[in-house]
Amino acid sequence: MQEKNIPPHDGVQRYLNDRKPELSQKSLYNYRISVNQFADWCTDQNIRYLRELDGDLIAQFKDYRLEQVATITARNDMRVIKNFIEFCESIHAVFSGLAELVRIPKTTEQDEICDDFLTKEEADAILEFLGKHQYASHRHVILLLLWKTGARISGLRTLDVDDIDSTGPTVQIRHRPDTGTPLKNDERGERNVFVTEETMEVIQDFIEHQRPNTTDEYDRKPLIATRHGRAAHTTIQRHVYSATRPCNYNGGNCPWDKRPETCEANTWDGASKCEGSVSPHALRRGYVTAARNAGQPKDVTGERVNMSGRVLDKHYDKGNHQEKANRRQDHLRDI
Rank of each mutant, 00 (worst) to 15 (best):
L127F: 10
D77T: 13
A325D: 04
T226R: 09
T215Q: 15
F194K: 13
T179Q: 13
M1C: 04
Q204S: 13
E122F: 00
E261P: 00
Y316P: 03
G252D: 04
F194Y: 14
N320Y: 01
G302E: 03
E187F: 14
R310D: 10
P182D: 06
T234G: 01
R188N: 15
R191I: 07
R211D: 10
N306S: 13
D54Q: 09
P255A: 04
K20N: 09
A291G: 08
Y241G: 02
F61V: 05
E67F: 01
D334M: 13
T149S: 12
T214P: 04
Y249K: 01
V300R: 05
F84T: 01
S242G: 01
D63T: 07
F87M: 02
Y241T: 01
M78N: 08
D163F: 09
A70G: 04
V161G: 07
K258Y: 10
T108H: 00
R75H: 07
F117H: 15
A271W: 01
T199V: 15
E109S: 07
N5I: 02
I173D: 04
C88W: 03
H138I: 08
E323G: 06
P177S: 08
L127E: 05
H239Q: 08
L143D: 02
I153Y: 01
L223N: 08
R79I: 14
H281Y: 05
A243F: 03
T170R: 15
A290H: 08
E109G: 00
R103V: 14
I236F: 02
A294H: 03
T71L: 05
E67L: 09
E109P: 03
V35H: 04
I207G: 09
E190H: 11
R188T: 14
R220F: 10
D160T: 14
C42I: 06
K26T: 08
E323S: 07
D334Q: 14
E198M: 05
I224S: 01
Q204A: 13
G168T: 12
Y316L: 01
L127W: 12
K324Q: 15
F95V: 13
T267P: 01
G302D: 02
K20C: 04
F129L: 03
V202N: 06
G229I: 11
R220H: 15
S90W: 08
I335R: 13
A290D: 12
Y218H: 15
G11K: 07
R292H: 09
I113S: 01
Q2G: 07
Y31W: 09
P222A: 06
T301M: 02
K221W: 10
P212T: 12
Q68T: 08
H315K: 05
L223V: 11
A290S: 15
L53A: 05
K106S: 09
I72M: 10
N320Q: 00
R79E: 11
S90A: 05
R211G: 08
V161I: 14
I85A: 05
L223R: 10
I335Q: 11
Q172S: 14
S279I: 00
Q25I: 11
E208K: 15
D219M: 11
T170F: 15
R103C: 01
Q2C: 01
R304A: 04
E52R: 07
R176P: 00
N326F: 04
G309E: 08
